[in-house]
Design a binder for these strands. Structure first.
Lengths: 126, 126
DNA sequence: ATAAACCCCGTACCCAAGTACAGAGTCAAG
DNA sequence: CTTGACTCTGTACTTGGGTACGGGGTTTAT
């Protein structure tokens, strides 16, 4: 059982972020124990889930849906969302890889030409 | 020579985006030719540069700096920025790749288990 | 000669995902 | 018995990158 600041720390987020997720109903607001609220391991697992899903590029709204699916056990919808995200990730990765490669090439060229217009700046034009 | 809407279309952005870039001094505001302003091929190259640099993950502020470097021919600063971006891109790509792989694995598992808790939702917990 | 379709400028608004702050309560230690 | 560290709620602000709107001025086709 954590206080909100312990909980936030354990999840690697700020206290305000926890409250923000509660407002968004991504996290439940636990019942008070006396004057303050206490967070369980279950809440922590949920918070970590949010972080992981976020790293995979899901938006908070999508994550909310995933969390609700978890309750309703809607298997195929979850898979559908995963597939869509997978495709989006592949596209994004390919784009970044492409940008990375041309930037690397340019930087290399830049090292060799100390005079004249900078290849990095010039070659972006193409 | 383009009108603003032709220019925007040629660059693959909206008219409002062109004006926004002008406000940010990423694009010059060309002199009026009569009542309207006209955009050159040079402006278009600049606009496309912005798009490319953006695809490589540079922020608009960084792009502004790059554009100014182009004027002052500061070679090494441009290379420095390219290096920093390269590192950031590599990190980002690795993260996305990692997220992609675990998501793919989960989705595959999901296809095989039609009963019980969804592996996608469950396994994010780990 | 008038309506559609542009242009100009300035200001305001949008979104996601937080982050900050104000004003009040509670609790333990010195 | 007060000081400091926390908690609570609610509301407002921030950032980045646009997008929209209002009130005017031209230009062009019919």
């Amino acid at each position: 059982m954590f206080t909100i600041s312990q909980f936030a720390q354990a999840g690697g987020v700020g206290v305000e972020t926890v409250r923000f997720y509660q407002r968004k109903t991504l996290l439940p607001v636990p019942a008070r124990q006396g004057s303050t609220r206490h967070y369980s391991e279950d809440d922590l697992r949920r918070l970590k889930f949010i972080k992981k899903a976020q790293a995979a590029g899901f938006t908070l709204d999508e994550i909310k849906e995933l969390l609700h699916l978890d309750v309703s056990h809607d298997h195929s919808r979850a898979n559908e969302m995963a597939q869509a995200r997978l495709i989006a990730l592949d596209i994004k990765i390919a784009e970044l890889q492409q940008a990375r490669d041309s930037l690397a090439k340019l930087s290399l060229q830049c090292c060799h030409t100390n005079k004249g217009p900078c290849p990095i700046l010039k070659a972006f034009d193409i």
